[in-house]
Amino acid sequence: MGETMEKPLDGSALVPTKRRPLLPEAGAAGAPLITVIAVISFLACMSLAGFFLVRQAAQEWTSDLTGSITVQIISNSPADISRQTDAAAAILRTTSGVVSVKVYSLDERRKLLEPWLGQAEISDDLPVPGIIAVKVQKALRKDLSGLRSQLAEIAPGAVVDDHGVWNDSLAASARTGQILAFGIFLMIMLAAIAVIIYAARAGLAANKEIIDVLHLVGASDEFVAAEVQRRFFLLGLRGAVMGLALAILVLLFAGWALQGVEPSGYFLPAIRNQSGTLFWLIIVPLLMCTVAAFSAKRTVMRALAGRWSQ
């Protein structure tokens, strides 16, 4: 009889013993459920990362553009173009709110035309429009009417382009992308809730005997629900942290892999500068374990409330 004695019979020696959870930690649903939550969390992270990347990229595009305007000088006479360009540049340099003025030389302007006209010699008679790239402060960018009328006086061929059309369509598509990404994120969280409710119900059925005994010895529904809640909180946390870790790896790898493809990738600036995005992904495990705990508790309370007794 004495062979399995593990501790002295003094009650005080028993106190430090670890409190085991009352519901078996990894029941039949344990490992598969963690896997499902990990996958769901990974997808949630990716959709949320998509949301933030689109937002960041859109901000970078538009802030590039909103800090600049382009003045074109259009006329039929190359000489006129050259004269008006110089006059316009002079005015721009003295206008308050203008940060820098770059006048494109004829060679530079011809180079810009190459994609359309080929490398063939361009006739000197061809009136290639004058181009002045101007960096401006935001206040001036917002109200260009004064500058426009000033330019119109001395350079009637001047056309001020604030990239408004570009800006508007970029912002619109970025908004659409963000809404889409967030919608996907919400759908994924909805799936998570459904999975957890299903698992909580299955867990109630599988652990019926244990729950009956808990009720029998005087446990309230709240006590039982709290046990289930704690179990699902931990399951949700473990699964979600795994999903988050995988998502961060994938995002870092994507950023690294795209590093060499500098000029063409629209999302590149965002992906390379993504520490902000990665930080926000911490939302996913926090949300997932909260959702898991809350859904499980609610499911159990509702299931138990219908019974008079056990």
């Binding site: 009720h215 529904d221 019974r307 007794s309």
Partner: peptide
Amino acid sequence: PREQLPLMRR
């Protein structure tokens, strides 16, 4: 009511 049963069972 169900909420009072645990106190009885104890």
